[in-house]
Design a binder for these strands. Structure first.
Lengths: 184, 184
DNA sequence: AGTAACGTACCGTCCAGACGGTCGGTTAGG
DNA sequence: CCTAACCGACCGTCTGGACGGTACGTTACT
């Protein structure tokens, strides 16, 4: 069975996903033991791929950013109209949340210093995408903040909101990208 | 010296503030020892006021909500005009951040299960305040999300934003409360 | 008023257990 | 046969919190 054979990148990915699952079930302070068990690998094997617990969490962070950027790219409209980057970010934010956007996972990520640097890099990239997007800066800023708020609400008030309310918020934000002047 | 004498509520408050300071300096996983030292109390004394580490964090959470609500009340306009509750929340969100809104502190709070319940209660209260505030629901929702986003940005991108940009965002949100129809 | 009795605030020590990480060994692949 | 993937036992450290004790404040009774 070829899938069972040794395969470093595959094992790496499986460990990362197992870490996310273990974080959700065991809380933000999971032991490496629990993660290893969840991944079907020994603790030594886990530490072969990630030299420390921090390294493992950083792996999770990188995976998360990769996934988000891929989602934005996938949702980008082909025609080059004003606000297309912003709209892609809006759609990406409202995509069904994966394993990553769970409170326990986020808590674990927050505990690691490297997060700040990755966030800065990502923020700069995202800002570049939306800055030359043809929207009024004030408008772009309002939408960005609202998107951050949606993300936070997903974390803090899960399932407090119906899918209709969600869709309404998304449509409002999308509509806001169809005008280019100042909001007020 | 009367201030030095035994005084349970005073000690309790001092321990809570010390916990916040210790969280900031020692990170989200401070030991009770460190908190006790910071508060100028023995570990045994600390555990007399808070029966467990969780109980201490819950104390922090309650203090935080109390403080926020007091701030909103302080910033409430006397005249009963449409959008006054929303404006108070906007001003409260943009108040200079205290000890509480530090990443390490928030990370610690996120780790405790009781947070969810307190958040639900607070969210309901805040929703009641803004629901009968005379603004169009869509408008109120947009502003709420943007405020959440500002809070998140404070945590993740501290000092990435100039005070002018901050003020502009605040003024935009305040202006949005001065119309009562739908946004688009 | 004096004091005994009692409850509460606070102290300092101790320990069981958990956890991160190391290391020598073993197996598979090229 | 050599390197990389992987195992599993082991160790040193740290921490939460239990516990037995002390000192202070307050009430009750004389």
């Amino acid at each position: 069975m070829p899938g069972e054979q040794r395969n470093a990148p595959r094992t790496r990915r499986e460990v990362i996903e197992a870490a996310a699952r273990a974080l959700i079930t065991h809380g933000p302070a999971v032991s490496l033991d629990a993660v290893a068990k969840e991944a079907g690998v020994s603790k030594g094997g886990l530490l072969h791929h990630f030299r420390s617990k921090q390294a493992l969490i950083v792996g999770l962070i990188d995976e998360w950013f990769e996934h988000y950027d891929a989602t934005v790219a996938r949702l980008l409209e082909p025609e080059d109209t004003p606000g297309r980057w912003t709209r892609a970010h809006i759609r990406a934010t409202f995509e069904p949340a994966g394993l990553w956007s769970h409170p326990s996972v986020v808590t674990a990520l927050l505990g690691v210093p490297e997060l700040q640097q990755r966030l800065d890099v990502a923020a700069t990239r995202w800002r570049q995408q939306t800055d030359s997007d043809g929207l009024h800066p004030q408008r772009a800023d309002l939408i960005s903040r609202a998107l951050d708020g949606v993300t936070l609400a997903d974390l803090l008030w899960r399932d407090q909101e119906t899918s209709e309310e969600r869709a309404q918020t998304r449509d409002l934000l999308l509509k806001l990208t169809e005008q280019t002047g100042p909001v007020v």
